Amino acid sequence: NITNLCPFDEVFNATRFASVYAWNRKRISNCVADYSVLYNFAPFFAFKCYGVSPTKLNDLCFTNVYADSFVIRGNEVSQIAPGQTGNIADYNYKLPDDFTGCVIAWNSNKLDSKVGGNYNYLYRLFRKSNLKPFERDISTEIYQAGNKPCNGVAGFNCYFPLRSYGFRPTYGVGHQPYRVVVLSFELLHAPATVCGPKKST
């Protein structure tokens, strides 16, 4: 009989979020998941679920829940969905086509923008091939755009693969920082350890 609540607040209220190319993952297990707390949290810009209804989450049990978190621009949030393409979905964070879970995003301009620009948040701009679902690539190898080998030196046709967002408070909404948490639900042939409040007695 599990009684402790799942530590969703640790994920959602973290002081610093990860850059999207180096997205953070927390495994959540052996706890009671009260999703209504999240669902009623006012400032969400997006709360979209795939393969599961957000209002039914509290009735369900899962083997594991993974909480992935990172920061992207407002106009990139739409790429955090199954079957998407674009710089983020291709080179930074890719969801599987059969994704079961929820994508939760909110504007973090007050936290993550600075006058003069916040350059701490990076994304991958160049990559030889697209990421596989949930693949994480933190390499900083110089990207070779031409035929000539770069030998690890940036220059003509040789690019550092990461780019900084440089968030400023005055940017338009599409270019403002958004914090994103992706909850993915794993249902294995194993005992369920993460259940909603109704199922955990």
Score class of each variant (00 low, 15 high):
L5K: 03
S29H: 12
I142V: 09
L5H: 08
N109T: 04
V194L: 13
V77I: 05
D98N: 10
N40K: 01
V194E: 14
Y35E: 14
N130P: 05
G152C: 03
S164P: 09
R73D: 07
T201L: 12
G116Q: 00
A154T: 12
R16G: 08
A14Q: 04
K198E: 08
S184I: 15
T85V: 08
L125M: 12
T201P: 10
L38M: 07
K148W: 11
L162F: 01
L60F: 08
I142S: 07
S53T: 15
Q84G: 02
I2T: 03
R163M: 11
N120C: 12
F45D: 01
K48T: 02
V115L: 11
E141S: 07
A42R: 04
L125S: 03
F45V: 08
A192I: 15
A192P: 05
G116A: 01
T63A: 02
T55G: 02
A190L: 08
V37Q: 12
V52C: 05
Y35I: 04
V153E: 06
N75Y: 05
K26R: 11
R16F: 04
I2G: 11
R73P: 14
N64L: 10
A22K: 03
N151R: 02
I2F: 04
A192H: 12
R163D: 04
G174W: 14
Y123A: 03
G51N: 03
Y143S: 02
T15Q: 10
K128S: 09
S29R: 15
E186R: 15
W106M: 12
R168A: 01
Y119G: 12
V153Q: 12
Y121C: 00
V173Y: 08
T100Q: 08
A46E: 05
S164C: 00
A105V: 09
Y171T: 08
I138C: 03
V153M: 10
K198G: 06
Q144K: 05
T170H: 02
T170M: 14
E141D: 09
K110G: 08
G152Y: 00
P43E: 05
T201G: 10
L131M: 08
T193H: 13
I142E: 05
A154S: 14
L188K: 15
D59R: 09
N58S: 04
E10A: 07
G117Y: 00
T63Q: 15
I142R: 04
K26Q: 03
T63D: 10
Y91M: 04
Y143M: 06
N151K: 12
I142P: 12
G152V: 05
N64E: 12
L122N: 15
F44N: 03
T55E: 14
A190T: 02
G116T: 00
G174K: 08
N130H: 14
I2W: 03
E141V: 12
T3G: 15
N30D: 06
H189L: 03
N109A: 10
P197F: 14
G152H: 15
K128D: 12
Y143F: 03
K199V: 12
A22R: 14
I72V: 06
I142T: 06
P149T: 10
S108T: 14
A22D: 08
T100S: 14
A18D: 09
P54D: 04
L122W: 01
T140Y: 11
A67L: 00
T140Q: 10
G152S: 06
G83Q: 10
P54I: 09
S139G: 03
D9E: 09
R16V: 09
V115W: 00
A81Q: 02
N87Y: 14
R73T: 02
K114W: 00
K198N: 14
A192D: 13
P133G: 04
N87S: 06
N130D: 12
G74A: 05
F41Y: 12
K114M: 05
T55W: 03
F45Q: 10
Y35A: 03
N147W: 02
L111V: 09
Y121H: 06
W23F: 05
